[in-house]
Design a protein around this nucleic acid. Sequence first.
DNA 1: AAGATGATCTTTACGGCGTCCAGATTCAGT
DNA 2: ACTGAATCTGGACGCCGTAAAGATCATCTT
Lengths: 209, 209
Amino acid sequence: MREAAATDNRPYHHGDLRRALIDAARRLLETEGPTALSLRAVAREAGVSPAAPYHHFKDKGELLDAVAHEGWDLLNELMTAARASHASVRDKLTALGVAYVRFARDNPALYRVMYDCSRDKDSLPDHVHAQNDSAYCQVRDTLVEAGADPMDEQELELATTAAWCAAHGLAEMFSFKQFDHLKDALGGDEAFLRGVFEHMGIFGAAHHG
Amino acid sequence: MREAAATDNRPYHHGDLRRALIDAARRLLETEGPTALSLRAVAREAGVSPAAPYHHFKDKGELLDAVAHEGWDLLNELMTAARASHASVRDKLTALGVAYVRFARDNPALYRVMYDCSRDKDSLPDHVHAQNDSAYCQVRDTLVEAGADPMDEQELELATTAAWCAAHGLAEMFSFKQFDHLKDALGGDEAFLRGVFEHMGIFGAAHHG
DNA sequence: AAGATGATCTTTACGGCGTCCAGATTCAGT
DNA sequence: ACTGAATCTGGACGCCGTAAAGATCATCTT
């Protein structure tokens, strides 16, 4: 299987295999789900031998880390946009929570990889928690805007952590069919989200009534 | 618990292999972690051939389902006890939340299996959500005690769901080392838990000053 | 220009996995 | 005691992650 075929423009050395592998992994993740995401399948999808990825990633875990990294970046972007597109502090908080859960709903496999990678290391990636434009910091800063005392660091961290936990919990519960009838009764996913947030006293969704 | 005769005494037909397999799985889960939990390893631990489990479980998933089932039962028991051992409604709610997260902290591998099995089916087990003494119903009933209107079914379900999500989110975040400094600053795991719950407006942990 | 060097990719191989199948063994009902 | 069903073993298949050794190619040195 040398070069022979003129149509097979793939050279022996792939241009940017690292990039291609990450893309292939994300493609597989969307189409086949997380259980189908084997290193060999990714290599196959990228049109390369099963051992090729080892020249770009130490092991399967490192490839998944790279995929997860892009997931966190995307989430950070979405939350930045959500925060920016509302005026009042209350609306910003709600929008942040809704954007978070919506991301998890729209990218369930990616969301899972993001937390699975973190769990394997007992640690979230730095750019999720520490970095300035991280999702964590966006929530924290908005809480300060909302009146939290930035001097009382512990309370502020607790409140941000509480918000993060609440959003993550809702994101994971969201897909269970046990809540389908509630979603229907309330008139859709979005209303369900806001309804739950209302009761969490964190994301302060608009209360009706 | 029936013992597995390690000597040559073992009869061809195991007494209760189904039971022994579940116990072996739980033993492996505690000692080796969730990644080491293969069907073959479980069979090995139970002193039986790799194909033997197939006479008691359709596939690996069904064995995990059985393990998860016992996990939910244990969680239900712990929450029943937590609820019963406090007088005031507020203390009951706090105790329920703390018991939940404590269970996840003390049985991380089991907790993981419980939700992985559910996610694979997009559905929580019935006896977790519907059954009368389920964890869900315990929280819901306590919320009614706390003054929630049982006639307003939707609001009650939303509040219970919010509590569930909050507890699950905290349970999953708990192990990340990002929060270690907060735990230390607050004086331990327990204080951290209560601190977060305080901000969730659900489990109504001990009032702030 | 020629050759050496190192990076990249392939081939092959190993052990472990989930699962199926054909036998061996034992139990239960006649 | 005989028969049939239930239970367990041994072996096989194709997948997986990973490692080692060889093939191919880009680049740097001279």
